[in-house]
Write a protein that binds this DNA or RNA. Structure first.
Lengths: 233, 233
DNA sequence: CGTTAAGTTGATCCTGCTCAAGGTCGGTGG
DNA sequence: CCACCGACCTTGAGCAGGATCAACTTAACG
């Protein structure tokens, strides 16, 4: 299992581990924290899928990011800042926890730990920019194709044991809609069309890539950006 | 003038300054770097506005972020990674420059510098999530209102000398469209309508807030998130 | 004062939304 | 093993927000 601190020197790892206050198990559907809360605990994801999201007054939702291990969630460098998003487990998840103050202290003592976090944070930033580009300027079909391709690739990197073109992703068509800025109904129509074109099928959480080349083509992936999904984790 | 390293210890600041390889002036409209380039130089913005953006094959563009001093642009923590976006000066701009390797070395030697960068990077992340939420789930009017409010507030924080409800922003209606995922034509119609409702006017780069309360209302700003624009810079 | 970038307006189209009803899957308890 | 239930998916009809295309106007700047 990939760890947040992979690649840091042994004494740093020991220091981190000794400061972990608790390893917590979160049930699927449970929230780790909410938008607007003060930042009192940070979560190092060890196992499972977690979504970062915001909700609107009227109940609509925007999914901002799909987090996989070894993501570090909920850290705000400035004390007193609030969480800029909510986090919810999509599957059962496991996290180590720590106070933000302890984490800052660790980053000061072991600069490698800080750099490691900075790397992850920059990567997240690029992924967010990717999503922004995806949602801002692309058709519904391209948005859905791109999201599913991203999740397929990232999932594969994390659990390399699996093979083949089939995969179970822990999300509903509603989740896809909330991540791509589309309604559930329209996501369904897009999926039906992609299935009809023998590109992919997604049905009750089971994703199958039928024609990966065409999928990459529809998704309009710039090969330079897939590096983001595969590096460092 | 706010500096990237504000708040770091004096010896760290001296070390940073001694390693700056060049202070570069960039003309309005000129690019600092392009998507897909290897990361050879990082830019510390000292003066001016810079946009981060991506372009599509067909010439369309998505603006990802409006950077103001003391942003640090173009840094990728992993050597060998490529720039995930292009950067262009909206106004004449001034940057200090440094090699990424030197910057990493500085972060190791002076953890405060690293933490400072991490803070800025996390803040950028939240802003990106803000834009994602804005574009993904909101009407054209709300998107435009929110963007202009953000830029008004951030601009005011940077040049606190100015007063009143008027301001010159260095962007065209096309830029607004590229940032909000709308066409120029539709941005114009939205602006016309906002003007008609006496909420704001934006004409040839001059922004005037006519009814700030109503603007905040239309923009649907969560007061918890405006902190992002005003903290730390 | 002429040139050019930027903004404005109208007509028309189409992608994706809304509302509503019905169908399918998978897990649970009997 | 089966029946049932709730979550999830599917499909249709009608609508609307924003896109597209095209012509024209206005402001800025040398």
């Amino acid at each position: 299992m990939a760890q947040f601190w992979d690649g840091c020197p042994p004494e740093a790892i020991e220091a981190i581990v000794s400061r972990v206050s608790e390893v917590r198990t979160i049930k699927a559907g449970e929230d780790l924290f909410w938008l607007g809360e003060p930042c009192e605990t940070i979560f190092g994801l060890l196992k499972g899928w977690v979504i970062l999201y915001r909700t609107f007054e009227d109940g609509r939702r925007q999914i901002l990011h799909f987090a996989l291990p070894p993501a570090l969630l909920g850290f705000q460098a400035m004390p007193g800042l609030f969480m800029p998003y909510s986090a919810q487990a999509l599957t059962e998840a496991e996290c180590w926890t720590m106070s933000p103050g302890t984490f800052v202290e660790l980053c000061r003592t072991y600069p490698d730990v800080g750099m490691r976090f900075t790397s992850l944070s920059l990567r997240d930033n690029s992924v967010a920019f990717d999503h922004l580009t995806n949602i801002g300027r692309r058709s519904a079909q391209k948005r859905v194709a791109r999201l599913l391709l991203e999740l397929f690739v990232r999932s594969r990197m994390h659990w390399p044991g699996h093979r083949g073109d089939k995969l179970t992703l822990p999300l509903t068509q509603e989740d896809i809609g909330d991540a791509t800025g589309l309604t559930t109904v329209h996501v369904n129509r897009v999926l039906t069309e992609l299935r009809r074109q023998d590109v992919l099928s997604f049905h009750y959480r089971r994703l199958q890539l039928l024609d990966p080349d065409r999928l990459v083509d529809i998704a309009g992936i710039d090969p330079r950006s897939t590096g983001l999904w595969t590096e460092m984790s």
